[in-house]
């Protein structure tokens, strides 16, 4: 009897481990966490532009009555390159797309825009990644949909994929 038990014990211990592991995976800590800012007005901010010729981005720019998109990106970020064509398509369809360059240098951003296109109406430089916290972003890229009164209405974590474009345009249309 004791022997039978001793032989099955390892299996039982392993099953226990599997159960715990599945529960652990289920409550996986690395899942994208949605910003609690959705539904909130955008925080006050004012960012410098790329250079003297280009205006920066401020919270007041997002309260002008038009629905806008704000894209948090970095020239150093690979998925940002992947989403560039989608942002171009959005801009071509008439959407106003603003950008915040997170922890970036002017020259790098200029090279990035030259390479991957510049669909942005305004670009704010955020050398210290402050906006990432203000918008409640966990990474880069992230894109926020903001209504005419400056309230954040939706958030896309990670790169915008081709299949997201229609959805985004439809939601912008609905809010206008």
């Amino acid at each position: 009897m004791i022997r039978r038990l001793a032989v099955i014990l390892p299996l039982a211990a392993f099953l226990l481990f599997v159960v715990i592991a599945i529960r652990g995976l289920d409550s996986d800590p690395s899942r994208p966490i949605e910003s609690g800012m959705v539904g909130q007005p955008v925080p006050d901010f004012e960012l410098e532009g790329l250079n003297d010729a280009n205006p920066g981005l401020a919270a007041s720019d997002l309260r002008q009555g038009t629905v806008t998109l704000v894209n948090l990106f970095g020239s150093w970020c690979l998925p940002c390159r992947v989403e560039a064509p989608q942002l171009e398509r959005l801009a071509a369809s008439g959407a106003v797309v603003h950008a915040v360059a997170i922890r970036d240098e002017t020259q790098d951003v200029e090279e990035f825009l030259a390479e991957y296109g510049d669909p942005f109406s305004r670009i704010g430089m955020d050398p210290r990644g402050r906006m990432q916290i203000e918008f409640g972003a966990t990474g880069v890229p992230e894109t926020y949909l903001i209504d005419g009164d400056g309230v954040i209405r939706a958030q896309w974590i990670g790169e915008i994929r081709p299949e997201n474009v229609e959805e985004i345009l439809a939601r912008m249309e609905a809010l206008q």
Partner: peptide, 16 residues
């Protein structure tokens, strides 16, 4: 750069 410690991300999200 694309990553925040999960505990921190969760805490901030909860606080928000």
């Amino acid at each position: 750069e694309n990553y925040m410690p999960p505990e921190v991300a969760e805490a901030v999200a909860r606080a928000e």
